Amino acid sequence: LKKVVALYDYMPMNANDLQLRKGDEYFILEESNLPWWRARDKNGQEGYIPSNYVTEAE
């Protein structure tokens, strides 16, 4: 899975979204639905995130 790091905080707009915290790492599960990607956080929560809020992890 592709790993990304959040560049900004993101508060979910609806139940399908995943909250982002700046500096945290996330795994990308699906990239087909631009600009929204399906992601999983370190706690196993899954949801959609804005792809322009993250960058690929080193």
Score class of each variant (00 low, 15 high):
residue 1 L to N: 06
residue 1 L to T: 08
residue 1 L to S: 06
residue 1 L to P: 09
residue 1 L to G: 09
residue 1 L to H: 09
residue 1 L to C: 10
residue 2 K to H: 07
residue 2 K to G: 04
residue 2 K to I: 07
residue 2 K to T: 06
residue 3 K to E: 03
residue 3 K to S: 06
residue 3 K to P: 04
residue 3 K to Q: 06
residue 3 K to M: 09
residue 3 K to Y: 06
residue 3 K to L: 10
residue 3 K to D: 01
residue 4 V to C: 06
residue 4 V to A: 04
residue 4 V to I: 04
residue 4 V to H: 03
residue 4 V to N: 01
residue 4 V to Q: 02
residue 5 V to W: 10
residue 5 V to D: 01
residue 5 V to T: 10
residue 5 V to N: 04
residue 5 V to Y: 10
residue 5 V to P: 00
residue 5 V to E: 04
residue 5 V to L: 08
residue 5 V to Q: 05
residue 6 A to R: 00
residue 6 A to M: 01
residue 6 A to V: 02
residue 6 A to L: 01
residue 6 A to K: 00
residue 6 A to W: 01
residue 6 A to E: 01
residue 6 A to F: 01
residue 6 A to S: 05
residue 7 L to C: 08
residue 7 L to R: 06
residue 7 L to T: 04
residue 7 L to N: 05
residue 7 L to G: 02
residue 7 L to E: 04
residue 7 L to P: 01
residue 8 Y to I: 08
residue 8 Y to S: 07
residue 8 Y to T: 06
residue 8 Y to A: 10
residue 8 Y to R: 13
residue 8 Y to H: 11
residue 9 D to Q: 03
residue 9 D to M: 03
residue 9 D to F: 03
residue 9 D to G: 03
residue 9 D to N: 09
residue 9 D to E: 05
residue 9 D to P: 04
residue 9 D to R: 02
residue 10 Y to V: 04
residue 10 Y to F: 09
residue 10 Y to R: 07
residue 10 Y to N: 02
residue 10 Y to E: 00
residue 10 Y to K: 04
residue 10 Y to L: 05
residue 10 Y to I: 03
residue 10 Y to A: 03
residue 11 M to D: 11
residue 11 M to Q: 12
residue 11 M to I: 14
residue 11 M to Y: 14
residue 11 M to C: 14
residue 12 P to G: 06
residue 12 P to Q: 04
residue 12 P to I: 04
residue 13 M to N: 11
residue 13 M to R: 15
residue 13 M to V: 15
residue 13 M to E: 12
residue 13 M to Y: 08
residue 13 M to S: 12
residue 13 M to F: 09
residue 13 M to K: 14
residue 14 N to A: 11
residue 14 N to I: 05
residue 14 N to P: 02
residue 14 N to H: 14
residue 14 N to D: 10
residue 14 N to C: 15
residue 14 N to V: 06
residue 15 A to I: 11
residue 15 A to P: 14
residue 15 A to S: 13
residue 15 A to G: 10
residue 16 N to W: 14
residue 16 N to P: 04
residue 16 N to M: 10
residue 16 N to V: 09
residue 16 N to R: 12
residue 16 N to D: 13
residue 16 N to H: 13
residue 16 N to Y: 12
residue 17 D to V: 07
residue 17 D to I: 08
residue 17 D to W: 15
residue 17 D to T: 07
residue 18 L to W: 01
residue 18 L to D: 00
residue 18 L to Q: 00
residue 18 L to V: 03
residue 18 L to H: 01
residue 18 L to G: 01
residue 18 L to E: 00
residue 18 L to R: 00
residue 19 Q to K: 08
residue 19 Q to I: 08
residue 19 Q to Y: 07
residue 19 Q to R: 12
residue 19 Q to W: 08
residue 19 Q to V: 08
residue 19 Q to T: 09
residue 19 Q to F: 07
residue 19 Q to D: 04
residue 20 L to E: 00
residue 20 L to D: 00
residue 20 L to F: 02
residue 20 L to Y: 00
residue 20 L to H: 01
residue 20 L to A: 01
residue 20 L to W: 01
residue 20 L to Q: 00
residue 21 R to I: 15
residue 21 R to H: 13
residue 21 R to A: 08
residue 22 K to G: 04
residue 22 K to P: 03
residue 22 K to F: 05
residue 22 K to R: 10
residue 23 G to K: 03
residue 23 G to M: 03
residue 23 G to I: 00
residue 23 G to S: 04
residue 23 G to C: 07
residue 23 G to Q: 03
residue 23 G to Y: 05
residue 24 D to M: 09
residue 24 D to G: 07
residue 24 D to E: 15
residue 24 D to A: 09
residue 24 D to V: 08
residue 25 E to Q: 10
residue 25 E to C: 12
residue 25 E to D: 06
residue 25 E to R: 05
residue 25 E to N: 08
residue 26 Y to W: 01
residue 26 Y to T: 00
residue 26 Y to F: 05
residue 26 Y to D: 00
residue 26 Y to P: 00
residue 26 Y to R: 00
residue 26 Y to A: 02
residue 26 Y to G: 01
residue 26 Y to Q: 00
residue 27 F to K: 03
residue 27 F to H: 07
residue 27 F to V: 11
residue 27 F to T: 11
residue 27 F to S: 06
residue 27 F to Y: 14
residue 28 I to V: 09
residue 28 I to S: 01
residue 28 I to N: 00
residue 28 I to R: 02
residue 28 I to K: 02
residue 28 I to P: 01
residue 28 I to G: 00
residue 28 I to Q: 02
residue 28 I to T: 02
residue 28 I to H: 00
residue 29 L to C: 05
residue 29 L to M: 07
residue 29 L to D: 02
residue 29 L to W: 05
residue 29 L to E: 03
residue 29 L to T: 06
residue 29 L to H: 03
residue 29 L to N: 02
residue 29 L to I: 13
residue 29 L to F: 06
residue 30 E to H: 08
residue 30 E to D: 15
residue 30 E to N: 08
residue 30 E to G: 07
residue 31 E to L: 09
residue 31 E to N: 11
residue 31 E to Y: 11
residue 32 S to A: 09
residue 32 S to L: 10
residue 32 S to H: 08
residue 32 S to F: 09
residue 33 N to H: 12
residue 33 N to M: 10
residue 33 N to K: 12
residue 33 N to D: 15
residue 33 N to V: 09
residue 33 N to P: 14
residue 34 L to Q: 12
residue 34 L to E: 15
residue 34 L to D: 15
residue 34 L to F: 15
residue 34 L to P: 15
residue 34 L to R: 10
residue 35 P to W: 15
residue 35 P to G: 15
residue 35 P to Y: 15
residue 35 P to R: 15
residue 36 W to D: 07
residue 36 W to F: 15
residue 36 W to S: 11
residue 36 W to R: 15
residue 36 W to N: 12
residue 36 W to Q: 13
residue 37 W to G: 02
residue 37 W to L: 13
residue 37 W to Y: 10
residue 37 W to M: 07
residue 37 W to H: 04
residue 38 R to Q: 07
residue 38 R to N: 06
residue 38 R to I: 09
residue 38 R to L: 15
residue 38 R to V: 10
residue 39 A to P: 00
residue 39 A to L: 06
residue 39 A to I: 06
residue 39 A to Y: 01
residue 39 A to T: 02
residue 39 A to E: 01
residue 39 A to F: 02
residue 40 R to K: 09
residue 40 R to D: 02
residue 40 R to S: 06
residue 41 D to T: 04
residue 41 D to K: 02
residue 41 D to G: 05
residue 41 D to V: 01
residue 41 D to P: 00
residue 41 D to E: 03
residue 42 K to T: 09
residue 42 K to Q: 11
residue 42 K to H: 08
residue 42 K to D: 05
residue 42 K to Y: 07
residue 42 K to E: 09
residue 43 N to F: 13
residue 43 N to H: 13
residue 43 N to Q: 10
residue 43 N to L: 10
residue 43 N to R: 08
residue 43 N to W: 13
residue 43 N to D: 13
residue 43 N to Y: 14
residue 43 N to E: 12
residue 43 N to T: 09
residue 44 G to S: 04
residue 44 G to I: 01
residue 44 G to Q: 05
residue 44 G to T: 02
residue 44 G to Y: 04
residue 44 G to D: 05
residue 45 Q to I: 11
residue 45 Q to W: 08
residue 45 Q to K: 14
residue 45 Q to H: 13
residue 45 Q to Y: 12
residue 46 E to K: 03
residue 46 E to V: 10
residue 46 E to N: 04
residue 46 E to Q: 06
residue 46 E to D: 05
residue 46 E to I: 10
residue 46 E to G: 02
residue 46 E to S: 06
residue 47 G to C: 02
residue 47 G to H: 02
residue 47 G to E: 00
residue 47 G to F: 03
residue 48 Y to V: 06
residue 48 Y to I: 07
residue 48 Y to H: 05
residue 48 Y to P: 03
residue 48 Y to A: 05
residue 48 Y to N: 09
residue 48 Y to S: 05
residue 49 I to M: 03
residue 49 I to K: 00
residue 49 I to S: 00
residue 49 I to N: 01
residue 49 I to E: 00
residue 49 I to W: 01
residue 50 P to T: 03
residue 50 P to N: 12
residue 50 P to Y: 10
residue 50 P to M: 08
residue 50 P to K: 06
residue 51 S to C: 13
residue 51 S to G: 07
residue 51 S to Y: 14
residue 51 S to H: 11
residue 51 S to N: 06
residue 51 S to I: 09
residue 51 S to E: 04
residue 52 N to G: 12
residue 52 N to T: 12
residue 52 N to Y: 11
residue 52 N to Q: 10
residue 52 N to I: 09
residue 52 N to D: 13
residue 52 N to M: 11
residue 52 N to K: 11
residue 52 N to S: 14
residue 53 Y to V: 04
residue 53 Y to H: 07
residue 53 Y to K: 05
residue 53 Y to C: 09
residue 53 Y to G: 05
residue 53 Y to D: 02
residue 53 Y to N: 03
residue 54 V to E: 01
residue 54 V to L: 05
residue 54 V to M: 04
residue 54 V to D: 00
residue 54 V to S: 01
residue 55 T to P: 01
residue 55 T to I: 14
residue 55 T to F: 08
residue 55 T to C: 12
residue 55 T to Y: 10
residue 55 T to S: 11
residue 56 E to W: 14
residue 56 E to V: 13
residue 56 E to Y: 13
residue 56 E to A: 13
residue 56 E to D: 14
residue 57 A to D: 09
residue 57 A to R: 10
residue 57 A to F: 12
residue 57 A to I: 15
residue 57 A to E: 08
residue 57 A to Y: 12
residue 57 A to K: 11
residue 57 A to V: 15
residue 58 E to K: 13
residue 58 E to Q: 13
residue 58 E to V: 14
residue 58 E to W: 11
residue 58 E to D: 14
residue 58 E to T: 14
residue 58 E to R: 12
residue 58 E to A: 14
